[in-house]
Amino acid sequence: MSDALLTACPCGSGRPLAGCCGRWHAGPLHLQAPDAESLMRSRYSAYVLDRLDYLRDTWHPRTRPEDLTPNPPGLRWLGLEVRRHRVTAPDQAEVEFVARSKLGGRAHRLHETSRFERAALEGTPRWYYVDGDLR
């Protein structure tokens, strides 16, 4: 088995990337994360791996920025802690998380409550990141 298939998933699940967030990043099911928490974890992993295509595709079109910027040189993602996943309506959910990183010798924490919406914008209903509130 290749090293890429055995690499631990950045989301912190303890599973190999290919059997965790990697399955949402690639192939015909790449946009089919089954719930908001799975989508949020896969988006964190996409940030770690600079998968800007996946981030764009899973961002709701009404709030998606024009351009996404790759990670700056030297940025290290250190970990993800999911604090809460809450369904707020049949097709809406929130995920509170803390993502830690380090750049230029300085540690950073991103503590956010993100909003997700399940919508059939391209035929098949799927989850999209809408926006978030920093805490």
Rank of each mutant, 00 (worst) to 15 (best):
M1F: 15
A4Q: 04
A8G: 01
A8E: 02
C9L: 00
G12T: 00
G19C: 10
G22W: 11
G22L: 11
W24S: 03
H25W: 13
L29A: 08
Q32W: 10
A33H: 04
D35V: 12
E37Y: 00
S38N: 15
M40G: 06
S42H: 06
S42W: 02
Y44C: 02
A46K: 06
Y47W: 13
Y47R: 15
V48E: 00
V48K: 03
D50V: 08
D53R: 07
L55G: 00
T58H: 15
T58I: 07
H60N: 00
H60A: 01
P61Y: 07
R62T: 00
E66M: 12
E66K: 15
D67L: 14
T69F: 14
P70C: 01
P70L: 07
P70D: 12
N71V: 12
L75D: 05
R76Y: 10
W77M: 04
W77G: 01
W77N: 12
H85K: 05
V87L: 01
T88H: 10
A89T: 11
D91P: 00
Q92L: 15
Q92T: 07
V95R: 11
E96D: 14
A99W: 10
A99I: 13
S101D: 03
K102T: 09
K102F: 12
K102D: 09
L103A: 15
G104V: 13
G104I: 05
G105L: 03
G105P: 02
R106K: 10
A107N: 03
H108D: 04
R109S: 15
H111T: 03
E112V: 10
T113W: 06
T113R: 09
E117N: 05
R118N: 10
A120C: 13
T124V: 11
V130D: 05
L134C: 09
R135G: 10
R135S: 12
R135Y: 05
R135A: 07
